[in-house]
Design a binder for these strands. Structure first.
Lengths: 145, 145
DNA sequence: CCTTGTCGTAACAGATCCTGTTACGACAAG
DNA sequence: CTTGTCGTAACAGGATCTGTTACGACAAGG
């Protein structure tokens, strides 16, 4: 599965913003976030735009613009981030409709929908157990600084 | 996430082979499986080849060749199928290495590895709860035939 | 009002992946 | 030796993802 890096980018951005906020810098530009992630600012504007639509960050425009966390990082679960940046389901169905004259072809889709839905729920429960603050704490804890 | 349909194709093939076996047809060609899935036989040969490498099906070559289930469908969990056809992880890491001068850039990867690993384990546990026989039973149960 | 800095977004390129197709050699049964 | 099927390479078309450039929209502050 050619897994994309959107969740990684978004969590990285939020963790970095949370660390900066703790240091008193409550607003950052997309260039500053991009410097930590080491990618293009447009990538971050796209990602942060999705987080804004989900209510996880706020943005100021015009001169002196920038991004801020909309709530404390303890209250941002990775599930919320996942929902913000990812919409496709984990597993894809058939590209072409299966043969309707075969019992399996007729009936397999609802069954797989159920199985796949259960699997996705399991992922969601797991992501819900970790917050951006947890991620930041584990990052800092792993470093001797 | 541009999710692929490999797990769907493989489970469909196995369920159809299980139904055929129950009817006494213990061997099928890739053309016959492809007819139920409604796709090209080469797609099925690729998919069944992965299932064979995982020991879930066997193949006979030469004239009168074809595919058979290697064990009863009750003993083929969707986790085994998943492992056979899918190797990439669910979530991707950064494409480019994060900025190592930023604490978050330095430390985020092991943390995300752990979170993503837990999420994948949750998916695997969920898939392990269902067998090909379960899928087939649910398919047949949903039809009035 | 104007300058300035940043966001928002379109447009595009390159890479990669997935599905589907054709083709053909390898293989084994009979 | 004929025949039918697998195994696999090669390729095309489409989709997606990342990255880049460019430029208009916007608002703060002089």
């Amino acid at each position: 599965m050619g897994a994309n890096s959107r969740l990684t980018i978004a969590v990285h951005a939020l963790a970095w913003m949370a660390l900066a906020a703790r240091r008193g810098l409550t607003q950052m530009t997309s260039d500053e976030v991009a410097a930590s992630v080491n990618t293009n600012p447009v990538i971050l504007r796209r990602s942060l735009g999705q987080l804004r639509a989900a209510g996880l960050v706020t943005v100021r425009r015009g001169a002196g613009a920038g991004w801020s966390l909309a709530r404390p990082p303890e209250q941002i679960s990775l599930l919320a981030v996942y929902d913000a940046v990812e919409q496709d389901s984990l597993f894809g169905m058939h590209h072409t409709e299966p043969n309707q004259e075969c019992p399996v072809g007729r009936g397999i889709r609802p069954v797989l929908d159920r199985v796949y839905g259960d699997a996705e729920q399991a992922v969601r429960r797991e992501l819900d157990r970790t917050s951006v603050a947890d991620v930041l704490r584990q990052i800092l804890h792993s470093q001797t600084s």
